[in-house]
Amino acid sequence: MPAPDRIVVGYDGSQQAALAVRWAARHAALLDSELQVVHCSLWPLLTHDLGPVKGVAGSGLQHQAEAILEEGRAEAESAAPGTTVLDSLVYGLPAGHLRRMAEDARMLVLGSRGIGGFLGLLVGSVSLELAATASCPVAVIRFDKHPEGRVVVGIDPTGSAGALRLACDVAMVTGAELMIIHVTRPQDGTVYSPAGGLEAARRLLEKSTATARALAPTVAVNQDLVRDSSVPRALLNAARGAALIVVGSKGHGILKGTVGSDAHAVLHHATGPVLISRN
């Protein structure tokens, strides 16, 4: 991954955010990066009374915000001793602050804090917004059950150069196997691929595999051409037991500033960390 060597992670005191901080800290150590833990306090938007309660030590909303930030920093230092950990307490809505603070970062890492009532649809609005609008790659950590697993990257007919490069970088530093997936879709009884047919899809996959082996010469690189009517479903099936799935942010999104529909579906249903390439 390109310099500057700084990973930004948001922390709000939740279990999901703690998982994200630990994931970010481990990867900061592997990538020899600094880690910046950010807590965004909303209280100044709601009240001016941030001070301690008279006669009650350690009370008050300001103290609470500082304690949450310190807790996030402690999570990071515990997960990756020796890594330089910075911390920042900011006030206001988190999406804008995190987007600004991660402008020149190597990666922005977020927990998944959905509040919907549907099982499987658990990515929060802040994570979705930043996955679509941040200028750097965005990792959304909902589960981290297979840290020793492979890295899976989905490539579209363009070759998804940014996603492929990110996947190679992570595989190189973790020593994980890299699996490159390209999905063709059946249509009217024949194999359809926007790349121009099955043979073109195979050539695309071979070219991407050769590129990955050049970018990550010490990594075991495998490939799979999958036929499925749903690209996200095929990617999610391939990513079972994986340490990370990497996808591009572009796709079939309708509105500017929204993540593509395939990446959106992967974010909502993934059972492991998802890394969104922004180019």
Rank of each mutant, 00 (worst) to 15 (best):
W23K: 02
R113G: 00
G117P: 04
V191C: 05
A74W: 00
L235C: 13
A25D: 00
P147A: 11
R106C: 08
A80I: 08
L42R: 14
L86S: 04
H97L: 04
G257D: 08
A105W: 13
E66D: 11
S14C: 08
L98W: 01
G272K: 08
P273R: 01
P137W: 00
G154Q: 07
A24S: 04
G257R: 10
G51I: 05
T47P: 12
R165Y: 05
L164H: 04
I7K: 01
G114T: 03
L128D: 03
G253D: 12
L89N: 02
A176Q: 13
E129Y: 07
I68D: 05
D224E: 15
G51C: 07
T258F: 14
P4F: 07
G162E: 13
P52A: 10
A134H: 03
S59Y: 01
S135K: 15
S59N: 10
L46E: 06
D156A: 11
D5K: 14
G175Y: 12
L166S: 13
A57V: 10
L130E: 04
R202N: 07
L46K: 03
T174Y: 07
V191S: 09
G111N: 07
S230R: 09
V266E: 11
D156N: 12
N237F: 12
P137H: 03
A265H: 15
H48R: 14
R227A: 08
V126D: 00
A25L: 03
G13W: 00
T258V: 14
E70W: 05
M1H: 10
G60S: 08
L128R: 03
V247M: 11
V221P: 12
T258S: 14
P273V: 01
Y11F: 15
K145D: 15
W23D: 01
T84W: 01
V138D: 03
T209N: 12
A214H: 15
P44R: 06
R233H: 12
L164M: 06
L93Q: 06
D12Q: 01
D156T: 06
N237K: 15
P2A: 06
V138K: 07
P81Q: 08
L205G: 09
A132R: 02
L69W: 09
A212F: 11
L198R: 14
P157Y: 02
Q16E: 10
A18N: 01
